[in-house]
Design a protein around this nucleic acid. Structure first.
Lengths: 241, 241
DNA sequence: CGGGTGATTGATGTGAGTCAATTCAGGTGG
DNA sequence: CCACCTGAATTGACTCACATCAATCACCCG
């Protein structure tokens, strides 16, 4: 791997935006200092690739800011998105030989990068960190398995409705209580139609058609290409089965 | 210890068939004794259910013998199989509130079960075990993500070919070197056609049709309903993309 | 005001689902 | 040993949802 852009070596961890949510949350001051010493901040522009599928697993990282996608290519060149990672999520393959998926920034992003070997050693020496990583991996496995049901058993409309509901829930957290205007939501979609198709195992045309169908059925509004309003989260969730 | 007395409460772990492959592999004698104390063996008949989706996560387990399936129901009553577990695999949801999938024995099976709370405590106190569990969970996540590509992007023939190749590889391990008759394999399928359909996100009819198609194309032989011969593993893998 | 990309819409094809009939294998009991 | 029963597997006819191919539209840059 060519040189990571290295920023001056402050203790970033202490001021880190995801300090309390990422896997480093349970570390004490000293441990944090050690972790800080082996990690580097890296900024990514939207569209920039951080890891390539099949490469040696050189680095792992924490997401500090932005959204990235994990994806893989099929033999015939199409793409299947395996997952999206958000701030405080972990990515890469610790204790592994090769990176099992490509990682690309969807939005401008900031990540906290570690050489995998450094991270592996640190993790083995700090069970609290390893425990956090385990909990996170177990949760990710659960989520991934739920996604299998979507891919294996849902039709296009159900896939789309489920995706929109989930996206709304991830992007509009508990900051505004649902009291506010009950069931309505409005947000900017992080993905293009093509990317949504790649997440859902569909084609761009099918995504587009069913978006307009959901709109015509009065479940959602589409004020702009990337803008979405959900009229009733509950009704939309019902469409997802 | 008095050598004439036969210890009635055996330490199962020491004689365990999967002793060296399961997550307990790195434990020393003392730790193994402690683990043994909180676990117990349980036999399951083919078709017997061990865990129900959505139940409180009361137990976790190691597979000692046999094959089990992890699955979930869709709203309209169909099933999606999320994964198969084989001897030495771990199942259940440590550090979690509810069991995210149902577990049913496909063949007669033997598992080593723990009360989840006991297991959680033991794991937190024994980082070597927790590390093993982490490695296993990471590997399982990789495998699950690869399966997403199958579900999201492959057609029926590719799914089936891929499944047969993978099954052959899991059931015919390195015991007989590939030198033996090169590329040919012959095995007993662990799943019924319906179960294969549930794994692959297909219907039983589609599975059946493409099985006969692969046979007519000379890639496989079907001497009996559950019997399979693969004429060329390589050629079959190519069909899978 | 054009050019370019992404999104939408339309026409058509096809692969997998659905429904239904038939065959097959395994087990049971006369 | 064979007739029968049962559930699984196969096969066929038909439908339909999604993919494909192609044309148009809308927005965002300069």
């Amino acid at each position: 791997m060519d040189s990571l852009e290295i920023e001056p070596s402050l203790n970033f961890c202490q001021a880190c935006a995801v300090r309390n949510r990422a896997i480093c949350a349970d570390l004490d001051e000293d441990e944090l200092g050690l972790l800080n010493a082996i990690g580097r901040r890296k900024r990514l522009q939207a569209g920039e690739q951080l890891l390539w599928e099949g490469d040696d697993a050189i680095i792992v990282a924490n997401v500090v800011e932005g959204v990235l996608k994990l994806s893989t290519q099929t033999a015939d060149g199409r793409e299947q998105i395996l997952g999206m990672v958000y701030p405080s999520d972990f990515l890469g393959r610790p204790f592994g030989e090769t990176t099992p998926y490509g990682v690309e920034a969807i939005t401008d992003a900031q990540v906290c990068v570690f050489r995998r070997t450094d991270f592996d050693r640190f993790a083995r020496e700090h069970p609290r960190l390893e425990h956090k990583l385990l909990e996170r991996t177990l949760a990710e496995l659960d989520r991934t398995r739920r996604w299998m049901v979507l891919l294996g058993r849902m039709n296009a409309e159900q896939k789309l409705a489920t995706y929109l509901v989930e996206t709304a829930e991830r992007l509009i957290p508990a900051n505004c209580k649902e009291s506010e205007l009950g069931d309505e939501r409005s947000l900017t979609l992080p993905l293009s139609r093509q990317q949504m198709a790649d997440v859902l195992g569909l084609t761009i045309e099918t995504v587009s058609r069913h978006m307009t169908k959901l709109k015509n059925d009065g479940l959602i509004g589409l004020p702009g290409r990337r803008e979405l309003t959900i009229n009733s989260l509950k009704a939309l969730a019902e469409r997802g089965g």
